[in-house]
C-alpha cells in the first residue's frame, strides 16, 4: 500500500492552478502592501486636489451622453454627458470623509466606553457591556437606518449612524485589552510605587491599550466606506453634488440600459480603495501581533 492517507483531494477533480499574479504576490510578500499603499496614497491625493486631476464633474454635455470609455472621456459619460472620471475623482473626498469620519467617531466613543467598562468596577462593567450587547444585537444596516431616520438624511448623520454600529465593537476590544493591561506587572509596579490612579491610567494603561486599536480602526475604515456608500446608494447620504461614490451608483442604476460605464467605475473605485485599506490593515496586524495570519 503506497496510498497517501492524509488530505489528498478526491479523484476526478481538476487541480487548482495558481494565477501568475498570485504567485508573484506569494514570492514577494512586500509587493501587495506596497501596491496597496501606493494606491491608497493616490486616492488620498485625488481627494485632496480633485481639480488638478479632473475637469468639472458637473459640466453637462448632452451631445456626448452615454458614451463608452474612449479618449477624451476615459471612463465614459452619464445620461447628462458628465464625465465619469471627473465625477469619481470628485467623489473621493466625500467617500473617504465618510469612512474616516465614522471610524474616528466610533473609535473615540468606543475607547471611552471600553475604558469605562474595563476600569469602572464590576457593576459599571456589567451594565456597559449589556448595553453593548443590545447595540450589537440590532443588525448594522437597520441600526444605521434608525439613526438616519432620527437625525435626517445627510453626510454627518450617515457618519454618526455608522459610528453607532461600530462603537460597541471598539468598546469590547478596548475592554478586554484594558483588563489584560490592568493586571500587567508594570501597572502593578506603578501602583505599588505610589503612582496615583489617574497617573497609572494616563501613563501606563491608555498608551498600552491604544496601539492595537490602530489595526481595528484601519479595518473599520474600509467597512465604513462600504457602509457609507450603501446608505448613500439608498439616497440617505451626502447631497448629490458631492458625487459620493454610492450616490453615483444610485444615479447610474436608473440608466443601466443606456450606459454601463457610470455603473462600473464608481464601484470599482470603492472596491479597490477598500481592498487597499484591508491589505494595509492585514499588514499592520502582522507587524503588531508578529504572528502569521491563518
Amino acid at each position: 500500500m503506497t496510498t497517501v492517507l492524509h488530505g489528498e483531494p478526491p479523484a476526478g477533480l481538476p487541480p487548482v492552478t495558481e494565477l501568475p499574479a498570485a504567485r508573484a504576490l506569494r514570492r514577494t510578500p512586500w509587493l501587495g502592501p506596497a501596491l496597496a499603499l501606493a494606491f491608497f496614497l493616490a486616492v488620498c491625493l485625488l481627494a485632496a486636489f480633485p481639480d488638478a486631476f479632473a475637469g468639472d464633474p458637473a459640466a453637462i454635455d448632452p451631445v456626448n451622453a452615454f458614451r463608452d470609455p474612449a479618449p477624451g472621456h476615459l471612463l465614459g459619460t452619464d445620461q447628462l454627458g458628465r464625465d465619469t472620471w471627473a465625477r469619481v475623482v470628485h467623489g473621493a473626498r466625500a467617500s473617504l470623509a465618510l469612512g474616516f469620519g465614522a471610524t474616528a467617531l466610533a473609535a473615540l466613543v468606543g475607547i471611552a466606553w471600553g475604558l469605562a467598562a474595563g476600569l469602572g468596577g464590576r457593576l459599571v462593567d456589567e451594565a456597559t457591556m449589556r448595553v453593548a450587547d443590545i447595540f450589537m444585537a440590532v443588525p448594522t444596516t437597520l441600526m444605521a437606518l434608525l439613526v438616519v431616520a432620527v437625525l435626517g438624511a445627510g453626510g454627518p448623520s450617515v457618519a454618526v449612524a455608522i459610528a453607532v454600529s461600530l462603537a460597541p465593537g471598539f468598546a469590547r476590544v478596548v475592554r478586554v485589552q484594558t483588563q489584560v493591561v490592568k493586571h500587567a506587572g508594570y501597572v502593578q509596579a506603578a501602583t505599588a510605587l505610589g503612582v496615583r490612579r489617574r497617573g497609572v491610567v494616563g501613563r501606563h494603561i491608555v498608551p498600552n491599550v491604544l496601539p492595537p486599536m490602530l489595526v481595528l480602526a484601519t479595518m473599520n475604515v474600509g467597512q465604513s466606506i462600504i457602509a457609507g456608500a450603501s446608505l448613500s446608494f439608498l439616497g440617505l447620504g451626502p447631497q448629490a453634488s458631492s458625487s459620493e461614490w454610492g450616490s453615483l451608483l444610485s444615479d447610474a442604476r436608473d440608466h443601466l440600459q443606456d450606459a454601463w460605464a457610470p455603473a462600473v467605475f464608481p464601484g470599482l473605485a470603492i472596491a479597490l480603495t477598500v481592498i487597499s485599506i484591508s491589505v494595509l490593515g492585514r499588514e499592520l496586524r502582522l507587524r503588531f501581533e508578529g504572528r502569521t495570519e491563518r
Binding site: S230, G246, A252, L256, V264, G267, A271
Partner: peptide, 11 residues
C-alpha cells in the same frame, strides 16, 4: 469583504 454587495448586484 471589500466589494459592496449593491455594486455586485448592479454588475
Amino acid at each position: 469583504v471589500s466589494t459592496p454587495s449593491f455594486w455586485v448586484g448592479i454588475l
